[in-house]
Design a protein around this nucleic acid. Structure first.
Lengths: 239, 239
DNA sequence: CGTTCTTTTGATAGCTCTCAAGTCGCGTGG
DNA sequence: CCACGCGACTTGAGAGCTATCAAAAGAACG
């Protein structure tokens, strides 16, 4: 599949996690194209289709171009532990570098397309483009801190508020509405991500709605009292 | 302080997290010395002394040379959240690259000495030594997965067993005894790390001792039934 | 040898999980 | 077009694990 060079590509690249590496490091045309020729557009993946599985050999990282990706492992009780959700512009596969194998499964929650970067080629390019190397270091470093977001002992309310606020900010950062969006994942997925029972997720969302914090119908959420949600989330997100 | 070039330095470097980058990548003498001239030995830090604090500007990563380092943040209730313990040979500061500031406090639990590497200089060197760049990518990638170790919803027993087994393995990997070692941290620190109350930590350790899994007196631990401990820890450590 | 901090031990309460049942939405097929 | 069936979601009641509160015992320090 040849790289698409349409309107959409331009819009996506400006909100992608590599955008600053691609666009705003003062690269000249030839350097820019060197990074762009590494990109392979893959997909679309259908909802429920796996992108990679735990143990698969690692050779590329990928930026989500469209859709939502869920990563998860299955614990010894056969229960799914969701590790993260990846929205358009975010990068999957960074935790696979160490062992050269993917440590988790990745599955498409809706129709997903990706920009795939060969990691060996990207590393090689990074030795010639210090800005790209720095960018990769920062991406990796960022994910170290992100993973400890769930590590604290927080209440169900705090976890849920933090989840919604974080989602809101990520959508807003990519140009979508931060106050009105669709949950692309099931309640069960949210529960497995927040380490709660799905019943607890239902109950908390119901109570948030009763208290006027938000309005939720099916998968459609509208944040009504952002201030109070931010306040609850602050304990988790630390800002 | 000039770099010490004694017996200890040789022994340390062979078990340090940079050892493979320093020693076993087939570098010639000049390349090796290029990495070694970046090293600044700092310390000793006295027990309770801070190595850096949350918000401090980041400019270097450091390998623990001797002693134990604890990293932590203080939550909105004024309670300490321990993020990790770092033993000799392990690297601190990797999560500070992203924001160019340390996101947590680091404190010496006992007498600590460090090997400090200027990160800008190390990055620069990494552009010329692809093996070093790969090594840094792997170190960073490794820590992403490590952070999610505590993220699951595990019982107090599972957490404690996983903590002891992980500690045991890390000591063994660095050439110390894996079955008989000293806890350099207080019960409170363990509790804050595992997200348990310190009372719970005491109770679990007491029960582990009553069941013959280990023998503990003050800070001195001896693992007696490694099999059962490994089995309990398996849920957490996933191996 | 007294003071202070750490650790241990006991009793109670609370948050969330589990189990169970019921409701809703949506695609399928008659 | 509508009934059906399945999965997702919601709602309720009770149990369990761990936190909290309280207090005592023990080690470290000057």
């Amino acid at each position: 599949m040849p790289p698409a060079d349409d309107e959409d590509a331009v819009k996506f690249c400006s909100t992608c996690a590599f955008s600053s590496a691609c666009l705003s490091q003062g690269f000249d045309k030839s350097q820019l194209s060197e990074l762009h020729v590494l990109v392979m557009h893959v997909g679309p993946f259908a909802p429920g289709e796996h992108i990679f599985r735990e143990g698969d050999p690692f050779n590329a990282i990928a930026a989500v171009r469209a859709g939502t990706v869920k990563t998860y492992v299955v614990d010894s009780h056969g229960r799914e532990q969701v590790q993260g959700f990846f929205l358009p512009g975010e990068v999957i596969g960074l935790n696979a570098i160490h062992a050269a194998r993917y440590p988790a499964n990745a599955i498409a929650l809706d129709t997903v397309t990706l920009c795939r970067f060969s990691f060996p080629q990207m590393s090689l390019l990074a030795t010639r483009l210090p800005g790209l190397q720095q960018h990769l270091f920062r991406l990796l470093s960022h994910d170290i801190g992100k993973a400890s977001l769930l590590a604290g002992d927080f209440t169900a309310d705090e976890r849920m508020a933090a989840f919604l606020i974080a989602l809101s900010r990520r959508y807003a950062a990519r140009g979508y509405s931060g106050s009105h969006f669709n949950l692309t994942m099931a309640r069960t997925d949210i529960a497995n991500y927040l380490r709660l029972a799905s019943e607890t997720v239902s109950r908390v969302l119901r109570r948030f709605q009763d208290e006027g914090l938000l309005c939720i119908e099916r998968r459609e959420v509208q944040l009504l009292d952002r201030m109070r949600l931010e306040q609850m989330a602050r304990v988790v997100l630390r800002d």
